[in-house]
Design a protein around this nucleic acid. Sequence first.
RNA 1: GGAGGGGUGGCAGAGUGGUCGAAUGCGUCAGUCUUGAAAACUGAAGUCUCGGAAACGGGACCGUGGGUUCGAAUCCCACCCCCUCCGCCA
Length: 422
Amino acid sequence: MLDIQFIRENADVIKEGARKKHVDIDIDKLISIDDKRKTLRGQMDEKKAEQNRMSNTIMRAEGDERQRLVESMRHVKQGLSELEEQYKAVMQEWQLLMLQVPNIPDFSVPEGESDAQNETIRTWGENPTFSFPAKDHIELMTKAGMADFERGGKVAGFRGYFLKGDGVLLANAVSQLALKHFMERGFEPMMVPSLVRRETFLGTGYLPQGEEDLYKTQDGEYLAGTGEVATMGYYMDEIVDGAQFPMKFLSYSPCFRREAGSHSKDTKGLIRVHEFFKWEQVVLAEASHAGSVELHEELTKNAEDFLQLMKLPYRVVVNCGGDLGLGQVKKYDIEAWMPSQDTYRETHSSSYFHDFQTRRLNIRYRTPEGKLLFAHSLNNTAAAMPRLLTMLVENYQQEDGTIRVPEALVPYVGKQVLGRPA
RNA sequence: GGAGGGGUGGCAGAGUGGUCGAAUGCGUCAGUCUUGAAAACUGAAGUCUCGGAAACGGGACCGUGGGUUCGAAUCCCACCCCCUCCGCCA
């Protein structure tokens, strides 16, 4: 959510931002509703003031005088309740629109409608070449006893899977390496709830727009698609200690996604699943654009370093306007090389929000001058499993169907080769 | 699941219909004292919002939303959350 004052003063910038993000929103309508809101508010305040004055007089009055005053108060009240009703209606419309106003994308964000227009800004590593017919992760993992998709489907339905044997070892190893790697960079590890109340989803910007992609319980909670939701909710409605900035959290959680809009995409394998596990970098920082930009680069680099540790070739793309979420100012996707698809697939998504999320969540801090400000927030994937495993097994596959373990993971896996020769 | 208790400022905690935006204590900040610090003493300080250049003035905020009343932190209803005990389960 943006500040209404800011929206009013910068309507053109907001409109331009919405256009760039391909978000359909009528800012002029919002402003005219806000005019109504302000007028009504003013009228209500005046009535209220009158009422307060009168009830003060009534308190002191006695007998007939009092009776008369109480009587005339009734008229004041009637006018007020009419105003209140109008105000309520206006506010409803106001809030609905306010939740839809997108944050302004950064100047450096390229134009474009969908991920097809994302721009590659750098690549790292060398894509493997195979002297034999390379297999995809489904075949590799199935044969190596690392995953079972058939029984996954039987038990869990569409997109269901079991990880087993060396697949579990590898997932655990990646998880442990991630924990070590990010803790070294000052992140505090957290295990956070996935079952989260609606409020926090509104605050992080996943609702009201993302209703379709969320699982919901019969008790009204939602299942989070990322640990970011609970982590951001952690300090909801609090004034945090600004001296601790930047606060860096490494959140672990199961993640659930309905993938409602992607039924035909990645229907096989571990690329797109309904439930998975993820370490997520989440940061709260002081309200400074320059600071956010710097941290954004840092979070991105953290993830790149992690992929480099495992020697996975990757590229970094800057997402175009149309591929940005409502609250995101700028986003980089990091995509690792996927031999079976002859392309890069997303492993990390790094973005910053300015105070878009913290305004909704009401997370503030006090500046040294004593001013209360909304903090800035950022996040980026740290390690998503099992998706990351698909790149690992495909890039490190050998002719006999076994999989070499990247050196950095060997201590955690406990061996150098996964699977058994065919 | 059953029974009960409770949600008040940064924190603790009073307040059960009328100058209550809210006592008191702790903490915070400024000053006095001190070579410096501590202690002691003196003083300051909530948040949001509207008008205003400012001084200042209006309005809102005591978990959330409704209601009763001329007037609600205080009474009534619903919901959310926390705590204690019992039961059940891990």
